[in-house]
Nucleic acid binder design. Structure first.
Lengths: 322, 322
DNA sequence: AAATATATGATAAACGATTGACATATTGGT
DNA sequence: ACCAATATGTCAATCGTTTATCATATATTT
């Protein structure tokens, strides 16, 4: 900063005034200082700034893994929008690893990020109770007072199941992740169950622990497809639906004739590269907007009253698999 | 820190000595201090630490977008490995936006990251010439003195093309990104051309600008497939190969009977969810290890001599599309 | 018992900014 | 020509650590 001041022929205080827009300043001085900053390729040291209590302009993003297209897309869009607002993104792949998530939480606190958006899948992390940072959660209950943004999973579950029923499905199975009772995602299962009950059909629920490899999942799916008497499957995520399609093809099962499949996610990726898949679309762009808006509110005023749950509507997307 | 010192009944100096492991310390004191730190949930303020010249333990990751499975996987693995080494990852989706990439470069410098790994697709960013930070590049020439890690794209191009030839392909087309002469990726095209020349076949080169949407690409592919006389296609990335498969199916083209397709990337994602695709596998895990190892070398010693190009071998993966 | 090694404390400067207090100079309006 | 508004400078404290220096106290050797 001293160098900039010298080069611009002003005092360090004036440079600071220019950077932080306060006090009286002539346009001439402002220009001089900006010119000097450019010439010296000067960037204020953000460590020093935030030591003074300035915001770090850093946001922590905690997701299971960006190698999953859904979270990759979510993270990418979050990052893009945050960048437009002048924030940088610290990426944390919790990788279904509770310890890692806890460590990250500590690190983020130490790095004094301005806020956190967390959408990981680990349960029972008490640190969330008192991080003392603005947090918004995606699709998961973290702690009292942390708002949750999710899609209307119950309706989504109902929607998918009803579609399968309407198309003639009577032996409708569901493939879903591990049972996590307090997760909004689990509502997809509840939606499924409610529809089956209305039609007095027998539920067929298959749980796949998240940590299972796709290969293992595929093997189990193959078993199910070849042994069980099923005419429709609701997969609570699109990738699992793809595994079902692959295995069905291997087994010579006709889709949608012998088996109807509906997925759930709504990524652009699937729409671009798997347009044939019938699926439940979540409003990813709206997730991003809402998550960031809520976080900004919390950042600007730690005490704003926010709802504890924001549920966005989902849509059914007719493909050729149902 | 003062609180910790008080609670442990020692001086602030001693706490600092414990944290930074220097000077004489009794085990008793070390334990006391650690206990106090835990009890108070104390994390040293990393801003203050790095003001003192300590490393920030932050690494910037610049990729086109993590919504693409290849970069999502790469980013995820990088993040995981960096975390194990005690680093946090700042994610930068350059989004094929040159301005954004330049801005990010500035921000990273201001945030005093310890190093950068850049694998974006923008050309002509002079800032790379003098960031004054350890940088390693993935698959792209950034500036003099910045080592590049990539796969052996020329061999990959040859490999794919030769496979198509061996399987009987004589009208072999290539679908590739925009012509970027200084990119290692472009070597895939050169490998293709060299094989065609050896067999005295006519090259058929189709360029798809990166910024084109998958939908637009798909439309163009459909045109090509329906109008041109082609029996084999080498796609320089797997997602484009998937579009070809989709459009071929729509048009009733038999794969691999009427048309053979080979992709290029090597993500676990494709192997898990598109196992039928024949493709060229890049060693992503080795990319990650090498990129990080090289970066660590540069961080620990800014002047180490590094090669300007590290080329890792690729493998052909036989699927059912060729 | 003296010499040395080990353990801790007190103090202060430094990292690179921000900001308030105060002083001084210039400008503009009347 | 005078007052207020505007423009800039000097100085010093502060943010939360790190680290060097000096001092002192206890423990271990010889």
């Amino acid at each position: 900063m001293t160098d900039v001041a010298k080069r611009a022929g002003v005092s360090a205080t004036t440079v600071s005034r220019v950077i932080n827009h306060y006090g009286y300043l002539s346009q001439k001085t402002i220009d001089k200082v900006h010119k000097a900053m450019e010439e010296l390729n000067y960037q204020p040291n953000s460590m020093a700034r935030s030591l003074q209590g300035k915001d770090t302009q850093l946001i922590g993003l905690i997701f299971p893994t960006v190698s999953h297209p859904f979270f990759g897309e979510l993270a990418s869009k979050m990052e893009t929008k945050l960048f437009e607002k002048g924030y940088k993104t610290i990426l944390c792949d919790s990788a279904n690893n509770k310890e890692k998530e806890r460590d990250y939480l500590k690190m983020l606190a130490a790095n004094k990020v301005d806020g956190i958006i967390a959408g990981a899948h680990n349960l029972g992390i008490p640190e969330y109770e008192n991080v003392g940072l603005p947090i918004i959660s995606f699709d998961r209950h973290l702690a009292e007072g942390i708002p949750i943004v999710s899609s209307d999973s119950y309706q989504g579950g109902r929607l998918a199941t009803e579609q399968l029923y309407q198309r003639g499905g009577r032996k409708i199975a569901i493939l879903t992740g591990t049972n996590e009772s307090d997760s909004p995602t689990n509502k997809r299962l509840e939606g499924y169950l409610s529809v089956l009950k209305e039609h007095q059909l027998e539920p067929m629920v298959y749980h796949f622990p998240l940590e299972h490899s796709p290969f293992l999942k595929a093997t189990e799916i193959r078993q199910i497809l070849s042994k069980e008497d099923i005419d429709s499957i609701f997969c609570t995520d699109d990738l699992t639906a793809i595994l079902v399609l692959n295995k069905a093809q291997e087994l010579g099962i006709n889709i949608p004739g012998d088996l109807k499949v509906i997925g759930y996610d709504g990524t652009e990726f699937i729409q671009n590269y798997f347009p044939q898949l019938s699926t439940i679309l979540q409003p990813i762009d709206q997730f991003v907007d809402l998550l960031i808006d809520l976080l900004m509110k919390r950042i600007n005023n730690a005490d704003v009253e926010l709802d504890s749950l924001y549920q966005l509507p989902v849509r059914f997307m007719q493909g050729q698999t149902s």
